[in-house]
Amino acid sequence: MKKHWYDYLWIFSATYLILGFFNILFAWLGMLCFMLPLLIAIFGGSKMYCNLFCGRGQLFSLLGKKFKLSANRKPPVFLHKKWFRYGFLTFFMIMFGNMLWVTYLVGSGQRPLSQHVKLLWSIKLPWQWAYHGGVAPWVAQFSFGFYSVMLTSTVLGIITMALFRPRSWCVYCPMGTMTQLICQAKKPKVKK
Protein backbone atom coordinates (compact mmCIF):
# COMPACT_ATOMS: atom_id res chain seq x y z
CA MET A 1 0.00 0.00 0.00
CA LYS A 2 1.19 3.48 -0.89
CA LYS A 3 2.50 5.54 2.00
CA HIS A 4 1.28 9.07 2.53
CA TRP A 5 2.79 11.88 4.53
CA TYR A 6 0.24 11.28 7.27
CA ASP A 7 1.40 7.70 7.69
CA TYR A 8 4.44 9.10 9.48
CA LEU A 9 2.58 11.02 12.16
CA TRP A 10 3.60 8.33 14.64
CA ILE A 11 6.92 10.17 14.70
CA PHE A 12 5.10 13.17 16.14
CA SER A 13 3.47 11.03 18.83
CA ALA A 14 6.73 9.37 19.80
CA THR A 15 8.61 12.69 19.85
CA TYR A 16 5.90 14.20 22.01
CA LEU A 17 6.32 11.53 24.66
CA ILE A 18 10.10 11.90 24.62
CA LEU A 19 10.00 15.71 24.86
CA GLY A 20 8.02 15.42 28.07
CA PHE A 21 11.06 13.89 29.70
CA PHE A 22 13.13 16.96 28.93
CA ASN A 23 10.76 19.86 29.22
CA ILE A 24 7.30 19.32 30.57
CA LEU A 25 6.01 22.49 28.89
CA PHE A 26 5.99 20.61 25.57
CA ALA A 27 2.92 18.87 27.00
CA TRP A 28 0.90 21.78 25.64
CA LEU A 29 1.56 20.52 22.11
CA GLY A 30 -0.76 17.65 22.98
CA MET A 31 -3.67 20.07 22.73
CA LEU A 32 -3.43 19.42 19.00
CA CYS A 33 -4.37 15.77 19.60
CA PHE A 34 -7.38 17.01 21.54
CA MET A 35 -8.60 19.83 19.37
CA LEU A 36 -8.06 18.40 15.88
CA PRO A 37 -10.14 15.22 16.25
CA LEU A 38 -12.96 17.17 17.87
CA LEU A 39 -12.93 19.93 15.26
CA ILE A 40 -12.85 17.39 12.43
CA ALA A 41 -15.79 15.53 13.98
CA ILE A 42 -17.80 18.67 14.73
CA PHE A 43 -17.26 20.41 11.40
CA GLY A 44 -16.43 17.53 9.12
CA GLY A 45 -18.75 14.90 10.59
CA SER A 46 -16.10 12.22 10.29
CA LYS A 47 -13.49 10.28 12.17
CA MET A 48 -10.86 11.26 9.63
CA TYR A 49 -8.50 11.92 12.51
CA CYS A 50 -8.67 8.32 13.74
CA ASN A 51 -8.93 6.92 10.25
CA LEU A 52 -5.90 8.68 8.78
CA PHE A 53 -3.97 11.03 11.00
CA CYS A 54 -3.72 9.79 14.56
CA GLY A 55 -0.07 9.10 15.31
CA ARG A 56 -0.89 7.20 18.45
CA GLY A 57 -2.90 4.58 16.61
CA GLN A 58 -0.03 4.31 14.12
CA LEU A 59 2.47 3.93 16.94
CA PHE A 60 0.55 0.99 18.40
CA SER A 61 0.27 -0.53 14.94
CA LEU A 62 3.99 -0.18 14.45
CA LEU A 63 4.91 -1.64 17.85
CA GLY A 64 2.47 -4.47 17.41
CA LYS A 65 3.25 -5.39 13.84
CA LYS A 66 6.75 -4.26 12.85
CA PHE A 67 8.20 -4.90 16.28
CA LYS A 68 5.96 -7.89 16.84
CA LEU A 69 5.16 -6.90 20.40
CA SER A 70 1.51 -7.82 20.14
CA ALA A 71 0.08 -11.20 21.07
CA ASN A 72 -2.53 -10.55 18.38
CA ARG A 73 -5.28 -12.11 20.41
CA LYS A 74 -8.92 -11.13 20.13
CA PRO A 75 -9.71 -8.73 22.95
CA PRO A 76 -12.46 -9.64 25.40
CA VAL A 77 -15.90 -8.79 24.06
CA PHE A 78 -16.70 -6.21 26.73
CA LEU A 79 -13.93 -3.95 25.40
CA HIS A 80 -16.08 -2.83 22.47
CA LYS A 81 -19.38 -2.84 24.34
CA LYS A 82 -21.05 0.52 24.74
CA TRP A 83 -21.30 0.36 28.53
CA PHE A 84 -17.57 -0.13 28.81
CA ARG A 85 -16.62 2.51 26.25
CA TYR A 86 -19.03 5.11 27.60
CA GLY A 87 -18.10 4.22 31.16
CA PHE A 88 -14.42 4.65 30.43
CA LEU A 89 -15.08 7.93 28.64
CA THR A 90 -17.02 9.19 31.67
CA PHE A 91 -14.28 8.17 34.07
CA PHE A 92 -11.69 9.76 31.83
CA MET A 93 -13.60 13.03 31.65
CA ILE A 94 -14.06 13.17 35.42
CA MET A 95 -10.33 12.70 35.90
CA PHE A 96 -9.67 15.32 33.22
CA GLY A 97 -11.99 17.75 35.00
CA ASN A 98 -10.15 17.04 38.21
CA MET A 99 -6.87 17.87 36.49
CA LEU A 100 -8.33 21.20 35.31
CA TRP A 101 -9.55 21.90 38.84
CA VAL A 102 -6.08 21.33 40.25
CA THR A 103 -4.72 23.67 37.57
CA TYR A 104 -7.21 26.30 38.71
CA LEU A 105 -6.27 25.85 42.38
CA VAL A 106 -2.61 26.30 41.57
CA GLY A 107 -3.40 29.31 39.39
CA SER A 108 -5.33 31.00 42.18
CA GLY A 109 -2.60 30.30 44.69
CA GLN A 110 -4.63 27.89 46.81
CA ARG A 111 -2.25 25.07 46.13
CA PRO A 112 1.47 24.88 45.44
CA LEU A 113 2.75 23.60 42.11
CA SER A 114 3.21 19.85 42.20
CA GLN A 115 6.06 18.72 39.98
CA HIS A 116 4.85 15.19 39.48
CA VAL A 117 3.48 13.10 36.68
CA LYS A 118 0.62 10.92 37.83
CA LEU A 119 0.54 7.58 36.11
CA LEU A 120 -2.73 5.65 35.90
CA TRP A 121 -4.39 8.32 38.06
CA SER A 122 -2.64 6.99 41.15
CA ILE A 123 1.13 6.52 40.88
CA LYS A 124 2.97 9.78 41.57
CA LEU A 125 6.25 9.94 39.71
CA PRO A 126 8.81 12.63 40.56
CA TRP A 127 9.35 14.70 37.43
CA GLN A 128 10.94 17.94 38.61
CA TRP A 129 13.94 17.51 36.29
CA ALA A 130 11.73 18.37 33.34
CA TYR A 131 10.67 21.73 34.72
CA HIS A 132 12.96 24.71 34.43
CA GLY A 133 10.65 27.50 35.56
CA GLY A 134 9.92 30.67 33.66
CA VAL A 135 6.15 30.35 33.34
CA ALA A 136 3.12 30.98 35.54
CA PRO A 137 2.55 28.12 38.01
CA TRP A 138 -0.78 27.13 36.44
CA VAL A 139 0.84 26.83 33.01
CA ALA A 140 3.34 24.41 34.49
CA GLN A 141 0.69 22.55 36.50
CA PHE A 142 -1.41 22.03 33.40
CA SER A 143 1.65 20.66 31.63
CA PHE A 144 2.24 18.08 34.35
CA GLY A 145 -1.46 17.19 34.40
CA PHE A 146 -1.86 16.97 30.67
CA TYR A 147 1.31 14.97 30.20
CA SER A 148 0.02 12.59 32.88
CA VAL A 149 -3.11 12.05 30.81
CA MET A 150 -1.08 11.39 27.67
CA LEU A 151 1.40 9.07 29.36
CA THR A 152 -1.33 7.15 31.15
CA SER A 153 -3.26 6.54 27.97
CA THR A 154 -0.07 5.50 26.19
CA VAL A 155 0.76 3.01 28.93
CA LEU A 156 -2.76 1.55 28.85
CA GLY A 157 -2.56 1.44 25.08
CA ILE A 158 0.77 -0.38 25.16
CA ILE A 159 -0.59 -2.93 27.62
CA THR A 160 -3.61 -3.72 25.47
CA MET A 161 -1.44 -3.61 22.34
CA ALA A 162 0.75 -6.31 23.87
CA LEU A 163 -2.08 -8.44 25.23
CA PHE A 164 -4.51 -8.19 22.33
CA ARG A 165 -4.42 -6.71 18.85
CA PRO A 166 -2.10 -3.77 18.09
CA ARG A 167 -4.72 -1.04 17.99
CA SER A 168 -6.85 -2.33 20.88
CA TRP A 169 -6.56 1.06 22.55
CA CYS A 170 -8.62 2.52 19.70
CA VAL A 171 -11.58 0.42 20.82
CA TYR A 172 -11.89 2.21 24.16
CA CYS A 173 -9.92 5.40 23.45
CA PRO A 174 -12.01 8.24 24.94
CA MET A 175 -11.20 10.48 21.99
CA GLY A 176 -12.31 7.83 19.53
CA THR A 177 -15.52 7.28 21.47
CA MET A 178 -16.19 10.99 21.73
CA THR A 179 -15.67 11.66 18.02
CA GLN A 180 -17.92 8.73 17.12
CA LEU A 181 -20.62 10.13 19.44
CA ILE A 182 -20.32 13.52 17.77
CA CYS A 183 -20.69 11.88 14.36
CA GLN A 184 -23.75 10.01 15.61
CA ALA A 185 -25.28 13.21 16.88
CA LYS A 186 -24.66 14.88 13.51
CA LYS A 187 -26.14 12.09 11.46
CA PRO A 188 -29.64 12.80 10.14
CA LYS A 189 -32.01 10.33 11.76
CA VAL A 190 -33.01 7.98 8.98
CA LYS A 191 -31.81 4.51 9.80
CA LYS A 192 -32.14 3.00 13.28
Binding site: G176, Q180, C183
Partner: peptide, 24 residues
Protein backbone atom coordinates in the same frame (compact mmCIF):
# COMPACT_ATOMS: atom_id res chain seq x y z
CA UNK B 1 -23.55 -1.92 15.93
CA UNK B 2 -20.24 -2.83 17.60
CA UNK B 3 -17.94 -0.96 15.23
CA UNK B 4 -15.85 1.81 16.79
CA UNK B 5 -15.07 3.42 13.40
CA UNK B 6 -11.34 3.42 14.04
CA UNK B 7 -10.45 2.68 10.42
CA UNK B 8 -7.85 -0.01 11.16
CA UNK B 9 -9.56 -2.25 8.64
CA UNK B 10 -9.43 0.44 5.94
CA UNK B 11 -5.66 0.72 6.23
CA UNK B 12 -5.03 -2.96 5.50
CA UNK B 13 -7.57 -3.68 2.77
CA UNK B 14 -5.69 -4.34 -0.48
CA UNK B 15 -8.77 -3.57 -2.57
CA UNK B 16 -10.06 -0.40 -0.98
CA UNK B 17 -13.24 -2.35 -0.36
CA UNK B 18 -13.92 -1.19 3.17
CA UNK B 19 -14.60 2.39 4.26
CA UNK B 20 -15.69 4.13 7.41
CA UNK B 21 -19.01 5.82 6.74
CA UNK B 22 -19.20 9.32 8.27
CA UNK B 23 -17.37 8.34 11.43
CA UNK B 24 -20.14 5.88 12.32
Amino acid sequence: ADCVACGSCVKVCPKGAIKVYKGL
